[in-house]
Write a protein that binds this DNA or RNA. Sequence first.
DNA 1: AAGCTTACCAACCGCTAGAAC
DNA 2: TGTTCTAGCGGTTGGTAAGCT
Length: 416
Amino acid sequence: MARSGGGGLVEGGGGGGGGLKKGPWTQAEDKLLVDHVRRHGEGNWNAVRRETGLQRCGKSCRLRWANHLRPNLRKGPFSPEEERQILRLHGLIGNKWARISSHLPGRTDNEIKNYWNTRLKRRQRAGLPLYPPDIEREIALLRAQNINPFADADGSASVSLPPPLLYDAGNPFALPPAVPLPPSGSHSPLINQSYPLLNQMQGMQQQVFHLAGGHHQSPQQQPVFHHHQQHDGGGGGFVSSGLPPLPTRAHELPSNQFDTSSSGSGGLLESLLLGDDHHLPRQHNPTMVKVNSMPAFTYRDAGSRQTVHGGAGAGSDSDEASHCQPGEDIHHSAKWNFTFEDFKPAKRRTPSEAGISDMFGVAPGSTPGEWFSTCGGSTAPSPGPSSAVTDEEFNLEMQQFMSLLPLSIDEHSWNA
DNA sequence: AAGCTTACCAACCGCTAGAAC
DNA sequence: TGTTCTAGCGGTTGGTAAGCT
């Protein structure tokens, strides 16, 4: 691929180029593009060239804007929590980078893709599993039931589910107000009628328990996948560390071209895999099985050997943890040594980054903020997707499901 | 210090889906 | 209904800085 070394490369025609410049963007080009978007809003990218004289194709403009010039971008290294979310979502939906990025505000699909590819390469070379055990368990549960979390039971249409769960811009880990709990041990008829997914998950729970012996099992007896050998799942680049390939559905999940403003994006299970506590009650319910939305996790930076704690359940105690030695997994012959290795600060920034920041007065790494409104508010911040499902109802559903998930021994060893 | 390797990341390409005509 | 245009996605490439020998 021919690329300019900085002086700029001009595409000599061919695929409709017509003297279009390629290669790295200059600050002047960025400013032209930013000014254009300020005036006209996003979209109509091919008009940028006509109206600004910018010698870039619309495609390139869109990409530059999306990946670098948007003011609410979040730059810098991924936080442990972000990494965790990437793992969960990738484990669930594979290389759907745009989909994954929709759950990481301020992060671009390109960024996540680059991160994953780097990680993938590194771990494959090292012969290490890609996912932590608890995430593998979650994925295994879904696969055991062949659940498509984005489709109805008949697989024909999307389930109306709550919107994707976003960070609070000010406090990414803030919890929403607590919600009342349902009567213990009861499943609201409303839920069972209104939430086909919950019904699916209840069925899943039954099968899991059946596999485990028909009743709640000790962690040692719970079904998990046993081999964590590196292999390529072979399904569209989806690589699993040891799970069987996701069964192919007659209807493939839609690509990432879904309407994020509708209630259909982001499903309940997707939220679950995000380890999202936003829809879990904070009140203590003694009747519930002691399972956090996600287990606390502990990992070490391979370089610094510094232990980091995180996850929705960070800080939670785990009595069983002491039963396992750190790094030991009863279900696996090999010792776990799964670390977020090479978690390093960004080593460099693009030369134009300072300039970009100056354009908006926003420092890279700042939390996502509101974008300016343009052109009659076409790009004004959305008030957020609406859903026929209320938060309270969703809370109940989440709560019901989480109470059904058995706690795997993997988590104990992982947390240890 | 120089050369090599690795990791990171910006940007391009091909393809697809939906909208507009 | 068929064609064209536009936007967006995922895969890939290649430049560059950092680390290593």
